[in-house]
Design a protein around this nucleic acid. Structure first.
Lengths: 242, 242
DNA sequence: CGAGCGCTTGACCGGCGTCAACACCCGTGG
DNA sequence: CCACGGGTGTTGACGCCGGTCAAGCGCTCG
């Protein structure tokens, strides 16, 4: 019940040196000495499932580097309904859209157990100085986020319910093993695709019956991909003449 | 017919110094001497309506700073249908999502007569060196673009057709005079909202009949806003019980 | 004046939202 | 051990929003 219990902080600065997630993507050019200096401004944080990492309106004091787990970024429209605008995984940087702003405009919620590093703005500035122009890692991360946002719009919010669900199934493939897909709750999927959870469920069932995917566990989260062509080339039922 | 006629290039480097659009947003800290050096790598370009500024697959050699007119960013989904993912106006930077990449993943098309400055990557790198961390103007522009992308998703691609059209009408208000709204063609609006042009037309007509907006010209592009409350608090017809 | 384009409006119908019922999983308490 | 209750996923019936097709109008340009 006490939410602060969900956050465990550790200050083991030596971790930055061995953590290849961070060094590879954000500190590619730093040697060990530089990393040690930066690590003072880096905190390790852990969150349990369904706990917010930050909430709309919270003060911004850095970015979060996601090391383990998945996070959803949620925004509420004027009408009060909420919408998932992004889902982030290991290696992604959380909170880029609020960098150089005072407060967050969205809420980040842990979809699983999550481990992140909070990287203070001081470190970001340090990074900017030590790197050259467009090679700047933080710039690269933002460019990636921007392209991801466009993908999200084009692939997941366009066309029929069937097309959207197909594209989501494709997007959620484990890239370590592309034969498998891990989905979210039907409600979350609906919030990503602007569909109701019943519609999502129906479309998934349809894909199973067609033989495109196969359910692997009872909770309906893990599936094996059987027919990639079916998922990719799905006709829009709204415009197919067959 | 000869498309290259649509592009007029001038190399008047002295313009950078007097162009407040550029200096304000991208070179806030540069003095005149620095500006002169940078201006060598800045080209002035002009495009006619409906002419692409760049096309998906084109090589990236800088970003475009939009000085005059409006530009739509278009992407084609796997199924072949195209979608407008962004509309940019004066002051916006075009092509940020392709910075540090080899080629564009989208197409930019002039919605009106357009004037831009092409700013080479050299200048961007120069900018990064002379500024400090999160204050970096290009970073600020990217952060703005990212937040805009999220707004786009939440406001324009969520809920009923009526809500979407209302939010688009609100988004397209002239901020110099918020009583007026300038819309695009019904097809372009449909491509932004994931609606057919007939549906867009119907919803606009509905808003006119309700007295929320008033048509001011015959082509159906310019409207006066009569009742802001009606536009903002529109009930979703799919969930209203009245 | 006719051709072409964009906007509007109507008729029809199909996909998706809504409501409902039910199955299943899991934690709690008897 | 089973009973119970809440949360999530699935499936069906039905109604309505929005896509589709079509016709007609006004504007622009040759």
């Amino acid at each position: 019940m006490v939410q602060s219990e969900a956050v465990l902080v550790s200050h083991d600065t030596s971790k930055c040196i061995v953590c290849d997630v961070r060094s590879r993507s954000l500190f590619p050019n730093c040697d060990e000495l530089e990393l040690e200096k930066l690590a003072v401004h880096v905190e390790d944080l852990n969150f349990r499932t369904d706990v917010p990492l930050y909430t709309e309106g919270d003060a911004v004091n850095g970015v979060l580097k996601l090391r383990r787990g998945m996070v959803k970024i949620v925004r509420t429209a004027v009408c009060g309904r909420t919408r998932i605008v992004r889902v982030l995984g290991p290696g992604d940087v959380i909170g880029l859209e609020a960098i150089d702003l005072a407060s967050y405009g969205s809420t980040a919620i842990a979809l699983t157990e999550v481990s992140v590093c909070r990287i203070s703005l001081k470190v970001i500035q340090q990074l900017a100085k030590s790197s050259s122009g467009v090679r700047m890692p933080i710039l690269h991360q933002m460019q990636r986020a921007l392209r991801e946002a466009d993908d999200w719009l084009v692939d997941l919010n366009f066309g029929s319910a069937r097309q959207r669900v197909c594209n989501l199934v494709l997007k959620m493939r484990r890239f370590t093993n592309p034969d498998f897909t891990v989905l979210l709750s039907r409600n979350d999927m609906g919030s990503m695709l602007d569909l109701k959870h019943e519609t999502v469920s129906r479309e998934i069932s349809h894909l199973v019956h067609e033989g495109a995917i196969e359910r692997l566990n009872k909770t309906g989260r893990l599936y094996r991909i059987l027919d990639l062509r079916l998922l990719k080339c799905y006709k829009d039922p709204r415009q197919s003449t067959s």
